[in-house]
Nucleic acid binder design. Structure first.
Lengths: 246, 246
DNA sequence: TAGTGGTCTAGACCACATC
DNA sequence: ATGTGGTCTAGACCACTAC
């Protein structure tokens, strides 16, 4: 097989760039897909065959293919083999920001203001989202995050004390809820929802803008193994935009 | 060590639920972090030690810890060891939708309308985003996606023919650009940016809504190994929201 | 310079879905 | 039934970097 030699060449070359063999193979696999040597729906050679071609152990090919499959370019099934995905990769990673860090990275001084704090029964719509019984009593907070004293983002938050031991003792006038939770209540799963709303009276007042202004709204839910931790609705100042990481 | 026995128990139990050893260990590691047995900033036992505790090979522990590290709960550095992340997981996966599928999943009939197609030089701001020279000539499209005949989403798109062989021959009145690209130009990297805008005259007209209405705007850039493929600005109908997968 | 994670290997066994 | 990917192992060597 002619490929055996050329495959090894590719591996050898790029290894000098500090990539692992698996990464080099993954790259070569991506190239073959992008260049349409392997077309959408095609079955590609099996792991054992590729291992011979690239001159590596099957486990190494396995790792490489799992990488590419995770990105969405390959579908892998036992016995059926590995196929080029028909509707390729549709994933992007999202980095959930810490507000204080964001503000400071923009060169502004961070501040925050606690608008309201109370224990309150869950409204029906939010109970549904959090998968908790309606009427269950959670901590309810309203906050404004400030940059150089001007409103940056409003935050309406519900916290489930059952999944966050120690939360009852926190003084949210001093400690920012966002940051306290991040540091003390690690989550294992998050869900984000993006939408746009014309600023309500309340939003306009809190964000120091006019009613009707288009605002980016983010709803965020976090969970750990014990259940839902917190649900938060964020409203950003006009003109703000939020990007996937890199 | 007492842990040796208990660790093996955990592994054995959950294996019956169809999880691999590595996944079971990852789960146990997450539990220890969430339950604060291992606190933020703590250094956790090294791989060899955990391998003994759980009664598995070091490679299996390695895989488990890499999983958890990828989620953001652990920081791993050679020689320094593995530490519980101070600012834990901040990632969420985003699934990039295919408009036709979205519309059809809502039980509506999909349609699309090509508003404009031309070759045009890149404006400065978009050239910067795409990392291409200003004035380079790309394909420029305006589209409206319809659900049951009503506007669902507008799309303004720039396509780089250099990274998409075969694009010149496509008739975009018949083939939807979104779908043609997805099926024929696999990308390896994507970037999404979310913002909100008050509907301009043009947006309002295309989306059949009133000027000033808050719209969710998504900018999306995709690349393959050859360079940028396409830049697109999406404006959604009022009330639309977009969520992370799962 | 020594301890830690990163990677690779050869071999093995298994689970599963397709043929 | 059987070929394919999924996983695990024991051992090895390497690449970092904190000490």
């Amino acid at each position: 097989m002619r490929e055996a030699a050329s495959g090894q060449d590719v591996t050898g070359q790029a290894a000098s760039r500090g990539l692992s063999k698996a990464q080099v193979i993954a790259q070569e696999v991506r190239r073959r897909i992008v260049d349409r040597e392997w077309r959408q729906g095609d079955r590609i050679p099996d792991e054992a065959e590729l291992a011979v071609e690239f001159g590596v152990a099957r486990a190494t090919v396995n790792k490489a293919l799992q990488l590419v499959a995770e990105e969405g370019l390959l579908d892998r099934r036992r016995r059926a083999g590995t196929h080029v995905t028909v509707n390729p990769i549709r994933k992007a990673t999202f980095s959930i920001p810490i507000v204080r860090e964001q503000v400071e990275q923009l060169g502004m001084e961070y501040g925050h203001r606690l608008v309201a704090k109370r224990m309150a029964p869950l409204p029906a719509d939010i109970a549904t989202r959090m998968d908790l019984p309606q009427g269950q009593v959670l901590i309810h907070l309203r906050n404004v995050h400030l940059g150089d004293g001007r409103p940056f983002q409003t935050e309406e938050r519900w916290i489930n004390p059952e999944t966050v031991p120690g939360i009852a003792e926190v003084d949210f006038r001093k400690a920012n809820a966002n940051e306290w939770l991040v540091r003390n209540a690690p989550y294992t799963h998050a869900e984000l929802t993006f939408s746009a709303e014309n600023a309500s009276h309340r939003d306009a007042r809190l964000l120091d803008t006019r009613k009707g202004q288009a605002l980016l709204i983010v709803h965020r839910l976090t969970w750990n193994d014990l259940g839902p931790i917190t649900f938060v609705r964020l409203a950003f100042h006009p003109g703000y935009s939020m990007s996937t990481a890199h």
